[in-house]
Structures are given as C-alpha cells and as structure tokens.
Design a protein around this nucleic acid. Structure first.
Lengths: 366, 366
DNA sequence: GGTGCTGCTGTAACCGGTTACAGCAACGAG
DNA sequence: CTCGTTGCTGTAACCGGTTACAGCAGCACC
C-alpha cells in the first residue's frame, strides 16, 4: 500500500453510513436526507477523499476520457488541432489523452492498449494500419481525423485533392508557369497523398505533361531547407515549387533566399494550411486555408456524441471547405495592408460542409 | 453491454479451465501444464480475447502508463521532448499519455484527474500551480521537467540563468554591444523567467545599467514577428535582440529582413534552444544548445524508476549542461562549412550533469 | 499402506467503486 | 387496525481482472 488511499468503505465507516450512501452523495444520484448528506460531505472534506478513478470506471463501464492519436506532433498544425479538439471536449467534461506514435515500433499495439483506457478514439489519418483501425472500430467509437476511414470508420476531412488542383491550376493557367515541382512525401500521410494527386490532376486537366516525381521530404521547416538544397543546385531550376504544407514552404523560402533567389521573381513557392506565419513572411505565402481547428472540433463532436450515446459507430463523416488564399509568393501583387492582417482578399472557396457519403460531388468542372 | 466483451470467465468456460488458469497463461505467471496452456492459448486466439485493462489495473494497482503534462504543444522543442521521453518509456513497456492544459480553464483539476489514471506524472515547469504540484506529489511520483520543483518535487532542468548570462556577456563584452533588448515573457514560464534573470545578471556583472523591460510576447515564430513590429519602428533601434527561444528569434529574423535590415550588420539577434532551423537560416543563429531530448529522457528515467520501484518521491533532481553555440547572427564570422552541418565550432560549455541538491554550485566566476 | 513431496488446478476473496433490490420507519387513507 | 406509499438507508452483487490458499493426483520412499 503506497499511499493508504481512502476507499468508499473507509469513508462510510467514518461517517457512520453505508457505502451506497457515500456513493450517492459523491455522485449526487438517488436520494439522501439533508442531514446525512452533510455528515458524509464533512467526512469527505476532512479526509480529502477522492473516489479512485479505476473503480468508478470499472463499475460504470465508462472512462470519461477520449484518446487522440497522432504521429509525432510538432508545429502549428497539430497545435491547432489539439486546441480545436479540446474546445469541444472541455464542454462535456471529458479528458483528452494524446498518444504520440512517432518512433514507437509497436505503435499499433500502443493504440489498442489506449483503446482500453478511453471511451472513444480520434486517429489522425495514416497513423495506424487499416487492419488495426478495423479492429479498433469494433471495440469502441473511432473517428479518423484528416484522412480516410477505409470504409469502416467515419472520417472528418477536407477535399485536399480538389483544393490542391485549384491552387496548381492557378499557377499553371493564371501565371502560365511550367516546370513545377512538388515537395512532400505522398506515402507519408493521406493528406500529402491527396495533395500530390490534386497536383497531378491539374496537369492532366490542362493537358500538360505529367509532373516530375515529388521531392520526398518530411513536413517540417528543416525539410523545406533540405528540399531547397536538392532542387536549387540543379542545372535547370524549376519555375515554381508547390509544397505539401506551409512549414516546408517556409523552409524553402529560407533556402531560396539563402541562395540569393528572389521570390516570386526568380521562383514561385506555395504552401498549404495557412498557418499564422504564412501571412507574416515576405513575400507572404500563397496557400490553401483549411479550417484546422474546426476539423478537430467536428471530429470531437462526432466522437463524444458516439461515446456518450453508446452508439457503436458514428457513421457519418464530414468534408469541410477550404479556401485558396492568394498572396504574394505566387507572383500575384501583394495586397498593401499590413502583413499582420494579411488574410483579407477575395479567395476561391472549395467544397462545402457536407455528408461524406456524397464524396466528391462537384466534379471539378473548371 | 456494448460490445459483448469477452471476460476471463468466458474464456475459462470455453477452454474448460478456471479463471485462475487463464490469468496464469495470459500473464505467464505460476505453473501451467503444457497441454492446458495450449488449450487456453487456442481459446484466446480463436476469440481474440484481450484482457480488459481496467480490471487488470484495479487488481494490480498499477496502470502501466505515465502522464506527460504540457501547456500547449507546438514546435520542435516539445516534439523533441516527447521523443526523448518516449524513448525511455518504450523500454519499460509503459504507455505515455500526454495532457495539454493549454486553454483549459480547469487545467489543475484535469491534471489531478489524470493522476488517477497513471503511475507517475511528468509536469512541464510552470504548467500547474505549486499547490497542485504538492497535492500531486503525495498521490504519486511526480517529476518536473524544465522548471522548479518548489522543494516538494524533483526537477530535471538546465541552468538557464547561467547560460543566458554567458550568451549576454558574449554580446556585451566580446562584441561591445549596448542597448540590448530581451524578447520573451518572464512570467510565462520558468524557463523564460530564468533566462531573463541571466540577461539582467550579465548587465550587473559588467557593471552596465540594467536593461529595459522585456518585450513580453509568446514563444512561437509569429510572436517574434510581432516583437519585430514593436521594436523596429522605434526611433532608436536596439543594437541587439536577445530572444527567449529560437522560434521567436526566427520570427524576428523574418520581421527584420522584411524591413530591409541586415543581420548581423544592422542588428544582432540571438536565440535559445538550438532547434534544427537555427543552423539553417542565414545568418545562422547564435544560440544556446540545451540537451532537450536528454532532459526528457532523464525525467522519464527518474519517473519510471520511481513508479516501478514503488518509491513515493524520486528525491534527486538533475541539472544538465548547456553549450553556447556561436554562429553568424551575433556578428561572429560564419563558419564556412555547409550550413547543413553547422554545429561544428568550439563552444562554451555550461554546467555539468550534477545533483540538484547542490544547485548553482559554481558561482559564475567570470 | 501411510507419509511427504511435487506439480497442477480450482475456489473464493479482493482491488474500489456503483447500483438493484430489499428493508424499515413514518404516515395517511380506508 | 391494516394496508399502501413515500423517503431514506443498507446489503450484497457486480464490473474484469489477479492471486492466496487449498485440494487433488501421482509418485517416491520408508
């Protein structure tokens, strides 16, 4: 016995009542006379009793917590996701436990392990194998965040491919750019897979030759710098670089200016996500805004609802809209207002909130 | 009953044995004849039985998980911390649950809630109130990561003040700079408190007038850009800006070059942490390297040891060494090798790994 | 044949809560 | 006086595991 923890029975003895009464008082259920309630409360206060979580969870078959499964977490994107998720969870007094699978060899086992400790699981797309996802889904409510549910699990996502296609067409058609490079690893995450797909789609739609193979790097700033190293020492420099996310784009910007290149005159660079820094660099970054926080909030809502209602599978997914945000880095004139309020500019909206069942309804008719 | 979960008794019935035997097989304890073991294993396999975590945790009075309490998590610093922590936890087959207190009004209550679900808690300095910390410490093993344990709890940390004093003296004495500004909010986290303290210390040691009040901003890149806004529109421009961390410094670099200033010629900028990007920007950032990953690994080691051994309080903290990393942004000549391998340069080491009991033993005798 | 040992297995208690159900007192109505 | 209600409280079973302890069979030995 480590801490000589107080138990219900102990408190019951001290207050001169039964365990049932203590439980009723501490939960506010059933009826207890005012006088008894006071006596029990005093015993609880005096000894600083707190019901042990495990017993309660075991008896109530409910943990009061949900899990959030991420690969590694770094950067503003994840930070924003977590905030969006928490903002919903806090309202239902549910704890959120985050599991980082990054660099854990046994990550699938870890996730299953966690599944026993929570009432529901939100999994970032591509974090666990489809098999494991299926296994999880029969155990407890699961929602995939930013990725594909593989038919077994609902997903909350954006239409990455369409958004990226729009952005790419802007560069190809409106700016007349050729020799675009894609920076990001399509096999790294479903998000990137879809964005790469949209990038290729745009080329097909405009009947241009397919793009070169992507520069496969990670999603953080240093990765962008490495990509710049690789790309800019080539004999033929690309006219534009389409990055899988903003952080890589920022890294590329650093790499490019380190080599004396001017953006967008010598080289066009675009991002994806519209993180806060995107509007603050010079030139400000042309990118796609996704409702990151809302994405997470909707996921949480779906999950919490399923976890509370005892629904096994929340069966409806969601697709949230994105916006093309045109700033200076693609060659469009930079708006003149302060870079700190950068976002004000008409932009192309893409996809509306809609049921996932009707996936890709608007057939990109541009 | 939501999923008709299998229980030990169910498996016992199916295998034609008792619950004790099933438990023995699934845990590998006690002795079971080869024939019975096989029969039980087959029943387990066939029905995909996995012992429910709660029952096990309740009976064994052990969760097999530890908690990691962070404010919000963003950026490479936290990412690195988590990796360091996980690298230790994975070896003892312990789950790590991360709790983000950021933007939760009831964060202290949340932490206490989590304390009931884990065997030990690592808390980032400044995340919970000293009172709560004390309360936690009597419940389970707690270690503070990068902060002050407030006498009740061991802490793993670096000597921020001494390291920052060394960096500041480098600017004041070696480069002869005056009018330095500090960017960061000392009331925001213990790390920044100590760094601000070291900054002031250096001024006192060199018998210079005390520095101006700090520019109180957060610790992320955009905060650095905002700080640049504030600082660089002043009539008298500072000669150098000492940032609380690298990310702010990178933001400042962006803000400064956006205004056409050249670093280090027009303005000196320094950071703290030595995140990967620090070596990749131009000019590369002069900063202080702290062993972030090791910091977290040591914390995990201390915690896991206490959690496993049943020790109530791991009573020894640690102070890990830091290095001054001199690169180009302070005005020193930039080393000529590739920016990708930037770190090779003699540097001033600060503080050795030592017991926390003998805190601040070397009295900054410079 | 009785005794003691060894190896395997089962029963039942326990971890710390919740809760169905029963019991009991007080009271009003018939 | 009996019966049904109402309001409060307690007993004991249960959640799903682990484990102390007892029991039993088989065997060696005296």
């Amino acid at each position: 016995m480590r801490h000589g923890r107080l138990t219900v029975r102990e408190i019951a003895r001290l207050a001169g009542v039964s365990v049932a009464t203590v439980s009723r008082v501490s939960n506010g259920t059933g009826q207890v006379s005012e006088e008894t309630r006071r006596r029990v409360l005093r015993a609880i206060e005096e000894h600083g009793y707190r019901p042990h979580h495990l017993g309660r969870a075991l008896a109530a078959r409910r943990h009061g917590a949900v899990g959030l499964v991420f690969p590694g977490l770094s950067g503003p994107y994840f930070s924003e996701l977590i905030q969006g998720f928490e903002s919903e969870a806090v309202q239902t007094r549910t704890s959120v436990h985050i599991l980082c699978t990054h660099l854990r060899a046994d990550s699938d086992a870890e996730v299953i392990e966690m599944a026993h400790r929570v009432d529901g699981l939100a999994v970032l797309g591509g974090t666990v194998s489809p098999d494991t996802l299926e296994e999880l889904a029969v155990m407890l409510p699961v929602v995939v965040l930013a990725g594909d549910g593989h038919s077994a699990v609902p997903a909350v996502r954006v239409d990455n491919a369409a958004a990226m296609a729009t952005l790419t067409r802007h560069l190809l058609a409106d700016h007349g750019l050729r020799r675009l490079e894609f920076v990001g690893d399509p096999s790294g995450s479903p998000d990137v897979t879809e964005r790469w797909e949209g990038f290729r789609q745009a080329h097909r739609q405009l009947e241009l030759p397919p793009p070169r193979a992507p520069i496969r790097v990670g999603l953080q700033q240093p990765d962008g710098v490495y990509a710049a190293e690789q790309l800019l020492r080539r004999a033929i420099r690309p006219q534009g670089i389409v990055c899988a996310n903003d952080e890589t784009a920022l890294g590329l910007l650093v790499g490019a200016s380190g080599r004396g290149l001017r953006v967008p005159d010598d080289l066009v660079i675009t991002g994806f996500d519209d993180i806060p820094m995107a509007a603050l660099v010079s030139p400000p970054l042309t990118t796609v805004r996704q409702p990151v926080r809302d994405l997470a909030a909707q996921t949480a809502r779906l999950l919490l609802q399923a976890a509370a209602g005892g629904v096994d599978r929340p069966d409806e997914g969601l697709v949230l809209p994105t916006d093309l945000v045109v700033r200076g880095s693609c060659g469009c004139p930079t708006v003149t207002d302060s870079p700190l309020t950068g976002r004000r500019r008409p932009s192309t909206r893409h996809g509306g909130a809609r049921r996932a069942g009707t996936d890709h309804p608007e057939k990109e008719g541009l």
